[in-house]
Amino acid sequence: MMTMRTLLLASTCAAMAAPALADVNIYTTRQPELIQPVMDAFTDETGIAVNLAFVDDGLVERLKAEGARSPADLVMTVDIANLKQIVDAGVVQPVQSDVLTAAIPDTLRDSENRWFGLTTRARIVYASKDRVADGEITTYEDLASDKWKGRICSRSGLHNYNLALMSAVIAHVGEEAAKTWATGVQDNLARKPEGNDRAQVKAIWAGECDISLGNTYYMGKMLENDEQIEWANAVDIIFPTFEGGGTHVNVSGVAMTTAAPNKDNALQLMEFLVSPQAQSIYAELNYEYPVLEGADLSDLVAGWGTFTADDTNLSELAANRPVALRIMEEVNFDG
């Protein structure tokens, strides 16, 4: 059985101090403690050690600066925009794996196999338990209705999560109708966009607005926080759909770097991450949904209810992002 060894990871502005010594090296934009348990399960099963390096900012710049000397085998990040960025930068390579393509729906992986979704998160509506009736909102299109005038809170329209949703709106209704929709939602805002998704739930709790957009996993995060649990208990989760479509989802994903000094081990880990065991662990740790059909949900996530994920390919959403950004700027969504 292989032993754990130490990897000294260089900063973007420093030369490599030592060669890569680990069995698999990962740069991750997710806090390592959020994914360490699934890595431990992989090591227990295979004897292959995994070293996680948290890279909060400048991931692409770091990989480009390191070039062929990079110790990183894999990159793990969230949101289709970030996955497209690493592809466009040319710092990841295609991976051919029947295991990966069988486990992951084609809407949740790159058509050229350069990135693969591992978990999904739905962009849902948080609604006041006291001020929003059952069935009052059912579609994303509803958000532009006059009945929500002065009742919606939102984080910045220029944030990746909202741009991904806007990209999905474009995919469903086209550019002009999407601009009309964005204008309608902006007109319905109760306040200027500010804060993160949790801040919108706090605003609902405080009576500043009645509904907000947010990712599902924030409910789990709030329920484990002594201060924020009161906010969480003030709202219901509603899974809106597109007219003729499903609920918008985004992904956390993985890609193999161009350098990948431990390619075989890295591929073994990628395939492990879509196994039923790993999918259930990974999804439960982050209050997300597995990409593998039939993998177990956490009891908490299962309690939020069921939904049908929209089947628009995430690669199409990535392609729509520049238009989504332009529309949000043109309608002055952030005021």
Results as ranks from 00 to 15, higher is better:
residue 111 S to I: 07
residue 23 D to P: 02
residue 12 T to C: 06
residue 113 N to P: 01
residue 102 A to F: 03
residue 79 D to L: 07
residue 59 L to T: 11
residue 95 V to H: 01
residue 15 A to H: 09
residue 20 A to F: 00
residue 20 A to Y: 00
residue 89 A to L: 02
residue 113 N to S: 13
residue 108 L to F: 09
residue 11 S to K: 15
residue 21 L to F: 01
residue 71 P to C: 08
residue 26 I to Y: 07
residue 71 P to T: 03
residue 75 V to W: 01
residue 87 V to R: 12
residue 22 A to E: 14
residue 51 N to L: 11
residue 65 A to Y: 00
residue 46 T to P: 03
residue 38 V to E: 01
residue 51 N to R: 13
residue 38 V to G: 00
residue 42 F to Q: 01
residue 87 V to P: 06
residue 98 D to A: 15
residue 49 A to T: 14
residue 71 P to Q: 03
residue 51 N to S: 15
residue 29 T to W: 11
residue 108 L to T: 03
residue 100 L to D: 06
residue 40 D to K: 12
residue 26 I to L: 05
residue 66 E to C: 09
residue 18 A to E: 15
residue 110 D to R: 00
residue 35 I to H: 03
residue 51 N to G: 13
residue 77 T to E: 04
residue 75 V to N: 03
residue 47 G to L: 11
residue 24 V to I: 11
residue 78 V to R: 00
residue 107 T to N: 10
residue 25 N to M: 08
residue 47 G to M: 13
residue 27 Y to P: 04
residue 21 L to V: 05
residue 50 V to K: 09
residue 11 S to C: 11
residue 104 I to L: 05
residue 88 D to S: 13
residue 43 T to L: 05
residue 67 G to N: 06
residue 116 F to S: 04
residue 9 L to D: 10
residue 61 E to F: 00
residue 6 T to Y: 09
residue 109 R to K: 12
residue 89 A to C: 01
residue 113 N to D: 05
residue 77 T to W: 08
residue 113 N to R: 10
residue 64 K to L: 12
residue 16 M to I: 10
residue 106 D to R: 09
residue 103 A to R: 08
residue 54 F to K: 03
residue 47 G to N: 09
residue 114 R to K: 15
residue 12 T to D: 07
residue 87 V to K: 13
residue 81 A to T: 13
residue 65 A to N: 04
residue 62 R to F: 00
residue 95 V to M: 00
residue 44 D to V: 09
residue 53 A to H: 11
residue 74 L to A: 01
residue 83 L to K: 00
residue 116 F to C: 04
residue 97 S to A: 09
residue 29 T to S: 13
residue 103 A to G: 10
residue 22 A to V: 08
residue 24 V to Y: 05
residue 44 D to E: 15
residue 65 A to K: 08
residue 39 M to A: 07
residue 50 V to P: 03
residue 33 E to M: 12
residue 90 G to N: 06
residue 37 P to F: 04
residue 7 L to S: 00
residue 15 A to G: 13
residue 14 A to G: 05
residue 94 P to L: 06
residue 64 K to W: 02
residue 82 N to S: 06
residue 115 W to F: 14
residue 97 S to P: 07
residue 111 S to G: 14
residue 15 A to E: 12
residue 68 A to D: 15
residue 36 Q to R: 15
residue 64 K to V: 07
residue 48 I to C: 03
residue 116 F to G: 03
residue 26 I to S: 05
residue 30 R to P: 08
residue 16 M to H: 14
